[in-house]
Design a protein around this nucleic acid. Sequence first.
RNA 1: GUGGGUAUAGUUCAGUUGGUUAGAGCGCCAGAUUGUGGCUCUGGAAGUCGUGGGUUCGAAUCCCACUACUCACCCCA
Length: 418
Amino acid sequence: MLTQAPKGTKDVTPRQSAHWHAVEGVMRRVCDLAGYREIRTPAFEHTELFMRGVGETTDVVQKEMYTFEDKGGRSITLKPEGTAGAVRAYLEHGMANDPQPMKMYYMYSPVFRYEKPQSGRFREHHQFGLEVFGAKSATVDAEVIDVAMSVFRNLGITKLALTVNSIGCPECRKTYNQALKAFLEPLMPQMCPTCGTRYEKNPMRILDCKDPSCQALTKDAPTTFDRLCGDCAAHFADLEKLLRAMGIGYTIDKRLVRGLDYYTRTVFEIIGQFSTGPLTVCAGGRYDGLVEQLGGAPTPGVGFGMGMERLIMAMEQEGLLAQDQPLVDVFVASMGATNEAFQIARELRAAGVRTDCDHAARSLKAQFKYAGKTGAAIVLVLGEDELREGTVTMRDMRASSEKRVPRSDIAATVRAAL
RNA sequence: GUGGGUAUAGUUCAGUUGGUUAGAGCGCCAGAUUGUGGCUCUGGAAGUCGUGGGUUCGAAUCCCACUACUCACCCCA
């Protein structure tokens, strides 16, 4: 119990962290190329922010938040998604006064949801994400999708499918909800209880029901997509044009409805193929009403969240994770003269050479074994003879050759040999 | 929240119809004569058999409960 990580959490061990660094490096590069800067927001926020931002009727808010009262009597919630915090920061720091659009990304941002864990689903996971504020053009929708696809492409992930849809704006939603409710009314007695409550609170989400009988009943239900207002339809047509121009393949899923209330117009998902089945790796969309809803001036927004754990899972399944790299390039072995060996290691490090030395007073043989495991290409041996003549023996592990090197020449000789 | 599966060493797993001091591979540590890795050989350390109860002369093994892990549903990255 004590030596077991809490349910639904995972350690990234020293062996695995290199994979994360590789992924993070690609993310930073892709974002930097497109003019996005990193934002870091707290792991927790006032509960109210998520209630109003994410939406009180969502499953995330209703049953999955880690909410607690702090010692000052404030209701605090560990963030269950990334966008609300970014919007809060945008407003708090008056970023609306900076040149617009304001483009930002976040990385390795922990996200907490109290769910029952299973393959690819955790109670704490990490998201990479983008948020763009202050631009309503479909080029931003396209850019955000392009950045996500670039991350996948640069990492070599191929088993992906992009699905897009438009769920319209509050204008189209009004007429749509009427049409949908009219269609559903006679069917409601046959539908599942969850859909019953959805009917009252957010009828659009009935289309998202996974119950086979509900799906059959709503097969011919009107979709938001077919009832878009002129502006929304034009916006989506623009996006399609851009996607085609970029050569990004996609399918339209008119029933794609996301689980967070703030989305408007464009919504999309990028779904990966895993041995256990398909899993959403990246999802997002436009949220033109969110900033205003949280107390700001009307400001359009677009963004997405990408699950880092799922991304790395996808890489693992496609055999894209790099082999273990050498821990150091040089190992300084010694026989008794451990302090001197440590000094030599320090000097090499100062010269920019990745170096380790013996810390266990082990036999020379054991030190060589250990050096082999670290992947060191060069082992320096400091024994009695070398101490006496002020040299070290430099052994090239790859060529199994060795030579004596004066102490003063170590750094230069080692660097030339690597 | 609902349902299925599993629980033995750091790890992956054996463990016969209940029977004495619970095993293996990998990993770890140490040796195989004089100051040298990878291969090989030898040895060693390491397990409250998930926890608690019950059945029995005897339980890792059978029964019950709990817990954890895992997979699926709901939902989601």
